[in-house]
């Protein structure tokens, strides 16, 4: 499975994003919210890497840092551009970054907030084309119509405004906009979280079809393990700004190596009344990213915590080929995966 994709399109190294906490009359910095802390990962061409985690774990910030929507504090993001050359995004000048944006796009969570309500569908979808000076107006119109058919919208609704569409249709408009410049890498930030179950399935199918057709690479950010298990090739699990585990989807669901992953997998309610899950109850709440506990950020809630966990931040290591984990005790633990995956 690991050998299916070999060419990394995105490589993230030691990426950090600290938001300063200011207070007082002169807004002095009194601390930092470590939204993203020391992340290492890569995404191969044509694959889907999913990021899961609870709210506030920094998965959205990480996605935006990779696209440079938010400037990361430090670290590097390497992007494999069209000429197959690795370029550094974090230090790229703005004008060059704008050009590179043709190849990387984003789909947003909220289909209501992400479309400018004052623009027609035609204008929304052709926005990236106008910005990159691609095509003339007439040609653009035809192309937008084509795109609308591709994402399953009626091309006759070209002149309508977003308020005339349902949530699922709006999300399709957002997808069409993201795909207008034929990108190679797309960040889907909770792209289906706001949709109803039946519509969610439609949009996920669309995303998968488009990936096949256009050889897209996805960074799929989600909190829904069910969705993730279907759509992704590899999964990264985040906890308050730290990546705690990253592995092949099947491997991670079948045999997780981090106690947090185990708890997350067991907490998801299973739609099967005869098989009520044996949950691992996590004590307490998610740690506050402004005041992280010492050592491993997960240790106050971890039932396997040892003394070392309170003192030392665990190292990010590759325990098995392609299976990364940040836990002191990972090799000694026998953790349970999700039912249906365990064999």
């Amino acid at each position: 499975m690991e050998n299916k994709y070999t060419n990394p399109i995105i490589e993230v190294k030691n990426l950090k994003k600290y938001f300063p906490i200011t207070s007082g009359f002169f807004k002095k910095t009194v601390g930092y919210v470590k939204a993203v802390d020391n992340i290492d990962m890569y995404i191969n061409e044509g694959e889907t890497l999913a990021l899961v985690g609870e709210s506030g774990c920094g998965k959205t910030t990480l996605g935006r840092c990779i696209l440079q929507a938010i400037k990361p504090t430090s670290g590097s993001v390497l992007f494999n551009n069209k000429e197959n050359k690795q370029v550094e995004l974090t230090t790229m000048p703005y004008s060059q970054l704008r050009d590179t944006r043709r190849d990387m796009q984003m789909i947003f969570q909220d289909p209501y907030a992400s479309l400018d309500p004052r623009m027609t569908v035609l204008n929304i979808i052709s926005e990236p084309l106008i910005c990159h000076h691609l095509m003339g107006p007439a040609e653009r119109r035809e192309y937008v119509k084509e795109l609308m058919v591709t994402v399953g919208l009626n091309p006759r609704h070209l002149e309508r405004y977003p308020h005339a569409f349902s949530g699922g249709q709006r999300q399709r408009i957002g997808i069409a906009r993201a795909l207008a410049t034929k990108p190679r890498f797309v960040v889907c930030d909770e792209a289906v979280a706001a949709l109803d179950v039946s519509v969610q399935a439609q949009v996920l199918n669309l995303l998968m079809d488009l990936q096949e057709k256009m050889n897209l690479s996805y960074l799929f950010i989600s909190h829904d393990l069910g969705v993730v298990s279907h759509i992704s090739d590899r999964v990264g699990v985040m906890y308050v700004g730290h990546m705690v585990e990253l592995a092949d989807t099947v491997k991670l669901f079948a045999r997780p190596m981090h106690p947090y992953t185990e708890a997350l997998l067991s907490a998801k309610p299973v739609a099967d009344p005869r098989n009520k899950s044996r949950r691992i109850m996590l004590e307490g709440d998610v740690a506050n990213p402004a005041h992280l506990p010492s050592g491993c950020p997960f240790h106050p809630r971890c039932r396997y915590a040892k003394d070392i966990c309170k003192e030392q931040l665990p190292e990010w290591r590759e325990l098995e080929p392609g299976h990364y984990v940040a836990c002191h005790c990972a090799q000694d633990l026998q953790l349970h995966g999700m039912r249906g995956y365990e064999k």
Partner: peptide, 16 residues
């Protein structure tokens, strides 16, 4: 706002 970030992601200039 998401749609403003979306516009930046599309490659719009500051002025735009």
């Amino acid at each position: 706002e998401d749609f403003v970030i979306a516009a930046r992601m599309c490659g719009s200039s500051h002025m735009r």
